[in-house]
Nucleic acid binder design. Structure first.
Lengths: 131, 131
DNA sequence: CTTGACCCTCCAGCGGCTGGAGGCCCTATC
DNA sequence: GATAGGGCCTCCAGCCGCTGGAGGGTCAAG
C-alpha cells in the first residue's frame, strides 16, 4: 500500500507518516521504485499512533505502547501504568490551566474596558498591585 | 543594570532575556564593553513579560501588551479584549483536556492491569472496539 | 597575577510536525 | 509516443519559546 492510501486509512498526514518512519516508529518496506510499501501490520501501528496521539500520549510514550502492542508476552499492567501516567499529566495540565483561568477572570473583572487608558490588567502585569 | 541583575529582579532566566531582545521585545542599551544595560523601564517591561507569559499569553500577545502599556493614549478596552481572547483560548484547552481525561479514565477502567497480555487499552488504540 | 563569576556571540537542539523546492514515477489521454 | 496531472521521493528550513554548550572577553577580589 502506498503512503497516500495509508494516510487516508489512518487519518494521518503523509508528512507525519514519513516523520514517524524517520524517527523509527514504523518501518514500512520499500518497493523497487523507492516508494514506501505499507503492510496491514504497519497500518495498524499507524492507527495506534494516531489514536494514542489523539489521547495526548507523547511520541516516546507511543513508542512504548507500540513495543507493548508487539510483545505477545506483555502484562496489561504495564499498558495501564502508561495510560495512568498520561492521565495524571493531563490532570496536572487541567489544574494549572484552571488556576490560570481564575486569575484571568479576576483581572478581566477589574478592568473597565472603556476608552480610558487606566487599566487594572496592565497595572497588575507591571506589578503595581500586590504581587 | 547588568543582565544578571535584571534576571534576578524579574525572575526570568538570562538566556530568555537575551532571546526577548533578539526578537525585539526589549531593547536594552549597550555599554562600551558590549554589556547590556537595563534601564528601570526596560526591567518593568521584562516584568510585564514574565507576568504575562505566566498567565499564558503568547509572545505575540505580549508584544501587543507591551505596545499598549507604552501607549499613553490606549483604551483599556483593547487590553481587556486581549485578556478575554487569551481566557477563551485557555478555556478551550481546558475543555479538550477534560474530554481527554474522561476518555482516558474510561479506558483505564476497562483494563485489568494484571499479568495478562490481554488489554482493553491496546484493543481500543488499535481500533478493535468501536472507535 | 590569577581565580572565578559574570558577560558576550553563535550554533544546535528540544517536540511534533509542516511547508516548499526540485525532481522521479505512473497512469491516462490524445 | 508525447504530454499532463497526480503521487511519490529527498532534503532543507521554519514554527514556538526557549535552553544548552562552545569558545571567548571582562571585571572585581584576594
Amino acid at each position: 500500500m502506498n503512503i497516500g492510501t495509508a494516510a487516508t486509512q489512518t487519518g494521518l498526514p503523509v508528512k507525519t507518516i514519513r516523520y514517524y518512519e524517520e524517527i523509527g516508529l514504523v518501518t514500512p518496506d520499500r518497493r523497487a521504485n523507492g516508494y514506501r510499501d505499507f503492510s496491514d501490520t504497519c497500518v495498524e501501528q499507524l492507527r495506534l499512533l494516531a489514536q494514542a496521539r489523539h489521547l495526548g500520549f507523547s511520541l516516546e510514550e507511543c513508542r512504548r505502547l507500540l513495543a507493548l502492542s508487539a510483545d505477545e508476552g506483555r502484562a496489561s499492567r504495564d499498558v495501564r501504568a502508561l495510560a495512568q501516567q498520561n492521565l495524571e499529566a493531563v490532570r496536572e495540565k487541567i489544574a494549572s490551566l484552571t488556576a490560570l483561568e481564575t486569575q484571568l477572570e479576576g483581572l478581566i473583572a477589574q478592568c473597565h474596558g472603556d476608552d480610558d487608558p487606566d487599566c487594572a490588567i496592565l497595572d497588575d502585569l507591571m506589578g503595581l498591585r500586590g504581587n
